[in-house]
């Protein structure tokens, strides 16, 4: 539905050229929540602003629903922008307008009649859970409520796409979760495609289906959220995954269990999707004569199912251990034998 090809943006300043976005190609399906994660200065904001041409691309194409955004003239672009909602880190509401008037603003721009505006705004206020606050001014709202107004405003003209630039970065964790839940419910209810920019991995984990990892303007990795979580390839992705669940990647505590003794192995098990729900350990113990000592583990829910990691020590006869590991592997769970590193 959204196809981005070879998108680049070079900022030329007096002293230097900054390649803020460097040859990015991404395809996004209808109804998908697509995350873009990266550290500060990675070019995420520039990237999302290129999509609705708040920033003019230096190179490349953006196509939304077969419309090539990059080649539109300004008049057509304005029409097209009405179908691309956008929400912002700092909400960007008009302080001089009430909640109702803020949400009505894009409808005024689109030339919707007054009575239709009224109807649509009431609907949206209901949708984002702000009933009763219609006549409040933004200064009278909390951050979370402001972002709800921002979301309602972005949805006013029934857009095909919602662009979110750090939409939760100014909110506390609790409110962030509320807003993310709201976005997911809107995504499901309206089958709305969402592009979500963030520097917080748990935002990706909680709501995204697929993710692209950006570093210095380039997409260094992209794929299903679950895959990136379980097997991050790039250094940047690894750092992000690690930041989310430090415990899972902290193997230091395990070292005293890792020995050269061939009758005991420490293994890391990866459960992905539905595997995470299985009673694998009891299954194994029923089949093989081994002892299993659980060392540490965690489970992380994502939009595409849960994934978990479990470190266990398997002890018993060397041959049986090998058989056990093969069995676990054949049942679809990934196994990694931890070797003594030093």
């Amino acid at each position: 539905m959204i196809s981005i090809k070879g998108l680049s943006k070079v900022f030329k300043t007096k002293h230097q050229e900054v390649k803020a976005v460097d040859d990015v190609s991404i395809n996004i399906d209808k109804g998908e929540i697509f995350g873009v994660i990266g550290y500060s200065g990675a070019g995420k904001s520039t990237f999302i602003r290129l999509i609705n041409r708040l920033e003019e691309p230096t190179n490349g194409d953006v196509t939304i629903n077969q419309t090539n955004i990059t080649s539109l003239n300004i008049g057509k672009l304005r029409k097209e922008r009405q179908k691309i909602g956008m929400i912002f880190q700092h909400f960007n509401l008009l302080w001089s307008r009430t909640v109702f008037e803020n949400i009505a603003f894009p409808l005024e721009i689109a030339g919707v009649s007054k009575s239709e505006r009224k109807e649509k705004v009431s609907e949206l206020i209901e949708l984002v859970g702000l009933k009763g606050r219609e006549n409040s001014y933004p200064s009278q709202l909390s951050g979370g409520q402001k972002q709800r107004v921002g979301i309602a405003r972005a949805l006013a003209n029934d857009p095909d796409v919602l662009l979110c630039d750090e939409a939760t970065s100014a909110l506390d964790p609790e409110t962030t979760d509320d807003i993310l839940d709201l976005l997911v419910s809107i995504n499901k209810k309206l089958n709305l495609t969402i592009i979500m920019i963030t520097h917080e991995m748990h935002v990706i984990q909680k709501i995204c289906h697929r993710v692209a990892v950006m570093d210095q303007g380039k997409v260094v990795e992209q794929g299903d959220v679950l895959d990136v979580f379980v097997k991050p390839q790039s250094k940047t992705a690894k750092r992000f995954v690690q930041q989310l669940s430090p415990l899972e990647h902290n193997q230091e505590g395990l070292h005293r269990f890792v020995t050269n003794d061939s009758n005991s192995e420490v293994v890391k098990l990866h459960f992905i999707g539905n595997d995470a729900k299985r009673a694998l350990i009891s299954d194994v113990l029923r089949k093989y004569v081994v002892d299993i000592n659980i060392l540490q583990g965690s489970i992380s829910p994502t939009q595409e199912g849960a994934y978990g990691t479990l470190y266990v020590e398997i002890s018993g006869d060397q041959k049986v251990i090998t058989e056990t590991i093969n069995y676990i592997q054949s049942s679809g769970v990934e196994v990694e034998v931890i070797q003594d590193v030093d």
Binding site: R78, R81, Q82, M86, H90, I109, R153, N157, L163
Partner: peptide, 19 residues
Amino acid sequence: GVIEAAKSMGAKTRTIIFK
């Protein structure tokens, strides 16, 4: 940011000035 939000909604310059 507010001017930018208006642009992202497809506002014309006239709309940005007056609204």
